[in-house]
């Protein structure tokens, strides 16, 4: 009974604050979508409106053709995992997981079987009789997830489920979560402000800022060919270089980029990832190294050129290291990318 989701024109204001504006999104059956954006951009508000905990001012939410935006939350059959986990503190792990099943008037036998099955799924079988306060953060997170999936929801909503965990555990639970979602095939919307989490988990990423959707795409497309400066900068680091296209030639602040295919017309903004920006020592070079940082797997150079500050990263054991002050020339990838939805500077 996995559903597809269609959201049209969702809007919510709190007094003068526009928390969510004109939010439209379609999620296919079984798809894993991540809502990615900085803190306060309205991600939680979107989730709460889908779950029915917050009433939207405007907009429609449809699950597999059924309008749900006027339904009480208990009628929506949507699983929700909170950032705070929101486990019932006075109930054991097993009773937490059983809660939704009891509400569905299943028999004690059915409930016992389902609880055992779900706890096994999240590897928490041996903790069934513990109280939430007797569990670690990661264990509580698993129980919260188990409680949400036990009711076999049509849609699973995860609101920053991993953000209260330390980095190592976060990575492990992230992998577990992905495996579980693939296995169960539940349509999932996952909220996060962590771009690597969004990219690792999701089939598609929805980038949000200030209550509105900025861009939607696969992790790869958003990373490699972002249309906006916001997306380019939010998903990792990038160098933004203002340029002009004149007579089929690409002109940067320090001169023509030889061999670059012209993109767009007039003024454009190029976005070049640090790992795509090549670097070679050259006495006639227009730039010079201002800082070198060894990051373990990579070496990062900062280069000052024509009033811009650019980053270049190279990886591998033999990655060359240029001392501060070295004059350098830059090399660009053949398929230059520019931010097509960004107004010209």
């Amino acid at each position: 009974m996995v559903a597809n989701v269609q959201i049209i024109g969702l809007r919510k204001t709190f007094g003068p604050t526009v928390a969510v504006d004109d939010f439209s999104l379609t999620v296919a059956e079984g798809e894993f979508v991540a809502l990615l954006g900085p803190s306060g951009c309205g991600k939680t508000t979107v989730m709460r409106m889908i779950a029915g905990i917050t009433d939207p001012d405007q907009g429609q939410i449809t699950l597999s053709g059924q309008r749900i935006d006027a339904l009480m939350p208990e009628r929506r059959h949507v699983g929700l995992v909170f950032q705070s986990y929101a486990l019932f503190p006075h109930m054991s792990v097993a009773r937490n997981v059983a809660f939704g099943l009891k509400m569905r008037r299943q028999t004690a036998g059915q409930i016992a079987v389902k609880v055992a099955e779900t706890l096994a799924l999240v590897d928490m079988s041996s903790y069934a009789d513990r109280l939430p306060r007797e569990l670690s953060g990661g264990q509580q997170q698993r129980v919260a997830l188990a409680r949400a999936i036990a009711i076999e929801p049509r849609l699973l909503l995860l609101d920053e489920p991993l953000s209260n965990l330390d980095a190592k555990l976060r990575e492990q639970l992230r992998d577990d979560l992905k495996a579980l979602q693939r296995r169960l095939g539940i349509t999932t919307i996952h909220v996060t402000h962590d771009q690597s989490e969004a990219m690792a988990l999701a089939d598609r990423v929805v980038v949000m800022n200030a209550g509105a959707i900025v861009e939607v795409g696969t992790p790869r497309d958003l990373y490699q060919t972002p249309k906006t400066r916001f997306t380019a900068q939010f998903l990792g680091h990038t160098n933004i270089i203002p340029a002009r296209v004149q007579f089929g030639r690409m002109i940067t602040p320090w001169g023509e980029l030889l061999g670059a295919a012209p993109l767009g017309a007039g003024a454009v903004q190029l976005s070049v990832r640090p790992e795509d920006l090549g670097l070679a020592a050259c006495d006639q070079g227009a730039g010079h190294v201002t800082e070198v940082t060894f990051l373990g797997a990579e070496v990062e150079h900062r280069i000052a050129i024509a009033g811009l500050m650019l980053r270049s990263r190279s990886s591998g054991r033999d990655a060359p290291v240029h001392p501060v002050g070295t004059k350098v020339v830059l090399s660009f990838p053949a398929d230059l990318h520019h931010l097509s939805q960004e107004p010209a500077l």
Binding site: G52, I53, E74, G79, S84, F88, I151
Partner: peptide, 18 residues
Amino acid sequence: IPADLAAAARSLGANRRV
């Protein structure tokens, strides 16, 4: 009582009374 608890219970199928 954290408001999230009631919200969680509602999304699991409990009405206000429950």
